[in-house]
């Protein structure tokens, strides 16, 4: 069966982007269905390792979205996020991961339209890339994760030889 949807994980801060995504829903702004959202209190909570772990675990794409700079509910969480996420984005190729699989952006609670555009554009971007191979069962992924944790060099899911 052809894979129509991709596994896209969104890490959204509760105050701005999650609210923006809610507002997009309330406004009935149609979006692709691929994205699944993890709610965080703040993008400052975002440990960059989440991005890597998600991509290694088989996610096709990871999108992080928070409050616009200067507008963080916790004053400065998104500044920490910006630095950490920019570093991890540049570091992804070193891990053998296509950097286009990860984006971070800012969407306020009032920007329902912008959220629709961000989701649509990112979903298109991920669909333009080949799908990450899906493993037959969860023992497979668990084995892979174990191997990865023991291996000296992290390898990305799409290059792990599970063609």
């Amino acid at each position: 069966m052809p894979i129509l949807e991709r596994r896209i994980i969104g890490f959204l801060c509760n105050w701005c982007s999650y609210g923006g995504a809610d507002a997009a829903g309330v406004s009935r702004f149609t979006q692709p269905t691929d994205l699944r959202v993890v709610r965080l209190p703040c993008t400052g909570r975002m440990n960059p390792i989440f991005v890597v772990k998600a991509l290694l675990a088989g996610a096709d794409g990871v999108l992080v979205s928070g409050c616009h700079p200067k507008d963080c509910h916790y004053s400065e969480g998104n500044y920490y996020a910006r630095r950490r996420l920019e570093v991890i984005k540049r570091f992804l190729p070193v891990l053998g991961i296509e950097p286009l699989r990860f984006e971070y952006t800012w969407v306020s609670a009032a920007e329902a339209k912008r959220w629709q555009e961000v989701v649509t554009a990112f979903t298109e971007q991920i669909h333009a890339l080949p799908p990450v191979p899906r493993l037959p069962d969860d023992t497979g992924i668990e084995r892979l994760l174990r191997e990865l944790e023991n291996s000296p060099l992290p390898i990305c899911g799409c290059h792990a030889g599970h063609e």
Binding site: D22, A24, G25, V26, F29, T30, Q31, V37, R39
Partner: peptide
């Protein structure tokens, strides 16, 4: 699980 704002209201499939 937010299945209204993030699911039912934004997709028709």
């Amino acid at each position: 699980a937010n299945i209204r704002e993030h699911v039912s209201w934004i997709g028709k499939d």
